[in-house]
Design a protein around this nucleic acid. Structure first.
Lengths: 337, 337
DNA sequence: GTATAATGAGTAAACGTTTACGTATTTGTA
DNA sequence: TACAAATACGTAAACGTTTACTCATTATAC
């Protein structure tokens, strides 16, 4: 293998304690010894072994991230924010995708514990009791990202889904649309399911528009294919429709694609609003109007929170972050026509 | 903190050596002790500390991945393959994005060494001498993904870029196109720059088509904006163009978007072929014809290779993987018209 | 000049494992 | 029955650090 602190100590004719003090900037050595040791370190190309450090310090400078699936673009953006902050703080990240599978999640939780991560960011998924108990027993700090819990004292950062869905729907209404449908993802989904539907309904009711079964289509997930399948079904049960609220940008892309093959022009014949503001939302044709979650920033915030808990050992407050509508070209304005 | 092997040993009235043997399936204990110990482990919820294990075993079951930037979608797909195999092998991954910055790269290389990763996958970037020297001195196994080196004895997995670019161009030619342009990314890029241009030129020459300055436009990168900017420039210097080869799918999306705003119909007025076959290539409008690199599989292969090096301590062979054309709807067939 | 404090350094224990080695007990063999 | 071999365990060293303690030397104060 390569050199250890012992080699440095020997070559510099000092004790390992002194070397340790020097590389950690703890007092207790003279200018000359410092220089000598530093030079030896340089010569040898010595780098301290952080595994050994971790063992004694109980800090591994690693944080674990649990995500449902890696393929989802929204996850990618969260991770971007997370890795950014983590690396800026001299730590690194281990990402695990659970595929929303309880067994797998527990397995990864154990893995992360065994690897002694300093903290965990739990993303876009329900924090089940079993998970919480484990994390709690093992005393691993945790924060939730894009999900929440009423049951356990765990801080989170997310947008208010119902409110955001309300805003999206309201936006459509204010653009003069009356016949509005929704393609929702998995209704059972704790975080993105029912609350977005509720927001949609609430907006419709608030503006005294009828809302019934035919306005909805629920798919099994929040992906492209769900949108592709959803639109034809929705059009069939609700032919008068002029606008649709997609529960995610990926669903919206599916809708765009489906409309394209059905030769329905967006936004001339059909308006589409998405949810998330993925970075590719501006790349679609037409560019997608959507309700933005500040995804990268949310990742950053969650990371700062976990880091704060780790460093200060104190609780932090949950954060509801603001959403906003990003208007691009997929929604037609009916009001001034 | 939580329980250690000592706690288990004490509670089970055995020595820590016995406990260790049991959790590692090494011989040397009776059925009864095993049961007793296993039960205590269960009761206590004991999990071995892999930091301590790593210290003594010199295996951390962690591999490091160095990528140029995280935002690029192609990287995301590589990582998907990498994480999959890694996790299936009971290891985990630390991803570092270097932003193609030498200083940062060295910093991360040190980080990965300090964290004692078992191996490194180096993605889509030139392996500079400085990097190699470091890795070599530290004796960290490495494999290259989507990049190669003639200078150092390091295995890689990639497609033959020039060949693939040739195929893409040839595809266009066989569809009856004669006036073909190319939007290339950064020409300086070791891996995706000149060789794709060469493949394009080679195909043009092979089919006796003229090729000159006006056929090319080079941008600073391989992203969406590069495509968006590239198309107008290309159209200006080469108005007769009927087809364009984009050096990446992201560039192709930019071209699609640019064509949309310029009211140029794809593929009726302009054909576009991309490069990569990102998973979103089928989501674009129109769905993108492209030369496919098997991205996820390439990530998987690189991971299997690094794992093999780590486990067997032997060299492995580099792999050139096959590309193929994925025909979708962005290229017009001029031959039977 | 002596007592006291500050400085510069070394020694050794600790972190939580694995494992080489030693030893007592059991089993097998003749 | 006696002895060898196998089995079941324990002891202690090692992995590469950090750090509490200790101690000698030098500086400071009177």
């Amino acid at each position: 293998m390569s050199f250890t602190i012992k080699d440095v100590a020997k070559k510099a004719n000092v004790s390992i304690a002194t070397v340790s003090r020097i590389i950690n900037n703890k007092p207790g050595y003279s200018k000359e010894t410092e220089e000598k040791v530093l030079q030896v370190i340089e010569e040898l190309g010595y780098h301290p072994n952080s595994i050994a450090r971790g063992l004694i310090n109980k800090r591994t400078h690693t944080i674990g991230v649990l995500v449902p699936k890696l393929s989802s673009m929204i996850i990618t953006e969260f991770i971007r924010g997370i890795e950014d902050i983590t690396h800026h703080n001299g730590s690194s990240v281990i990402v695990c995708h659970t595929e929303s599978n309880g067994k797998k999640t527990m397995k990864y939780l154990q893995l992360l514990y065994e690897k002694q991560v300093d903290g965990i960011i739990f993303v876009s998924e329900e924090l089940k009791e079993e998970y919480y108990q484990f994390i709690n027993r093992m005393k691993i700090p945790i924060v939730l990202l894009s999900t929440e819990t009423y049951q356990f004292p765990v801080p989170y950062v997310k947008v208010n889904d119902q409110h955001a869905a309300f805003s999206a729907t309201e936006f459509l209404i204010k653009k003069g649309h009356r016949n509005i449908g929704m393609v929702s993802g998995n209704k059972e989904d704790m975080v993105a399911g029912q609350s977005r539907i509720n927001g949609f309904m609430q907006a419709m009711k608030h503006y005294q528009l009828p809302v019934s079964e035919k306005h909805f289509v629920s798919e099994s997930g929040f992906g492209f294919d769900d949108g592709r399948n959803g639109l034809p079904r929705l059009m069939k049960q609700y032919p008068d429709i002029t606008a649709v609220f997609a529960a995610s940008d990926e669903i919206a892309f599916g809708i765009l694609s489906s409309a394209y093959t059905m030769k329905i022009n967006v936004p001339e014949q059909l308006s589409v609003i998405g949810y998330d503001n993925l970075s590719i939302a501006e790349m679609s044709i037409p560019p997608l109007t959507t309700v933005a979650q500040p995804l990268v920033e949310m990742g950053e915030m969650a990371t700062k929170m976990i880091l704060e808990i780790i460093n200060t050992n104190q609780k932090v407050e949950s954060k509801i972050v603001a959403h906003r509508i990003v208007e691009r070209e997929s929604v037609r304005d009916l009001t001034n026509e």
